[in-house]
Design a protein around this nucleic acid. Structure first.
Lengths: 154, 154
DNA sequence: TTGTGTGCAAAGCATTTGCAATACT
DNA sequence: AGTATTGCAAATGCTTTGCACACAA
């Protein structure tokens, strides 16, 4: 698990005056150890192994809280639910338009961009996110967007 | 309405071999004229004024199709449904973490970034998207997230 | 003409909500 | 002690699906 990320999550909760319950700590621990982009259901299933009494509603509550604090971000709900990602290290998400696969890549330096945005807007910025949409190697090869596919991204 | 955007949408459908039905044309026309970030329900309500027989399922189908073609993108489903946005002109989305409000801003030059990504990945890139998360002026003032409480935690 | 696209309504699920019980601070 | 938070389960929609009909190509 990424300890720095874990502590960042905990500290965000703490600083905002939210209680550090066993459920929240466990969820944060999982988020800090997952290098994927889990859905609420996934988080629930995994954390439940350590905390059998955990409720799905609590997972939703906690994810919403962390999202509002800006320490995790919500990705499009492509299939089977919204996915969340922990903002550990800045990166670009390469997202396949067809199968929804997400690949991470190192992020170019955007601090200048962020500074410019902060200066030009009245928003209190928490984080930036750069997504690149396209077709992954598999889908690209299987058939470049042709007529006989109407099916949804499954 | 933005004619260029409209034609881009139509051409994307056409090139991929999809039929240009009245429903699809009407939906594209609305998307090209809306400078907001409509939900499927909004699209349905609006387009229905011109095309009373339109079905909500068709709206979902068409939006999914356009999204897969990469000409519109899906934004997080913050409240009341997923929102879509037409990729007319490059811009940054300033998204409020609390109320979900979205404000557009001009996009800094990212062609270098896109070129780098294209070179380093096997993806066939369709578009880039930059989102900035934070608190909008209203939410920022109504309740600052940072309570200055300092506490120690394990 | 052919097979894609549409409409309708019901089914499928992700997400939220209300309230009593629990437990963090 | 006081109150934020949890768990449970039902409620709430958003989204999808199946099938028969309509219509672009």
């Amino acid at each position: 698990m990424d300890v720095a990320t874990y502590q960042a999550l905990i500290e965000a909760l703490n600083k905002a005056g939210h209680r550090l319950t066993a459920q929240r700590l466990a969820i944060c621990r999982y988020l800090a150890s997952s290098h994927e982009h889990p859905t609420p259901a996934t988080v629930y299933a995994q954390v439940r192994q350590q905390l059998p009494s955990l409720s799905l509603a609590t997972v939703y509550n906690t994810l919403a809280l962390l999202r509002e604090l800006g320490v995790i971000t919500e990705m499009g709900a492509d299939m089977g639910g919204t996915r969340y990602e922990t903002d550990a290290h800045p990166h670009v998400n390469l997202i396949c338009l067809r199968c929804g696969q997400v690949v991470d890549m190192p992020l170019p330096d955007l601090t200048a961009v962020q500074a410019a945005l902060a200066a030009q807007s009245a928003f209190e910025l928490r984080n930036l996110r750069l997504d690149a949409y396209g077709l992954c190697p598999d889908c690209r090869q299987s058939q470049p967007l042709s007529a006989d596919e109407k099916t949804t991204y499954a």
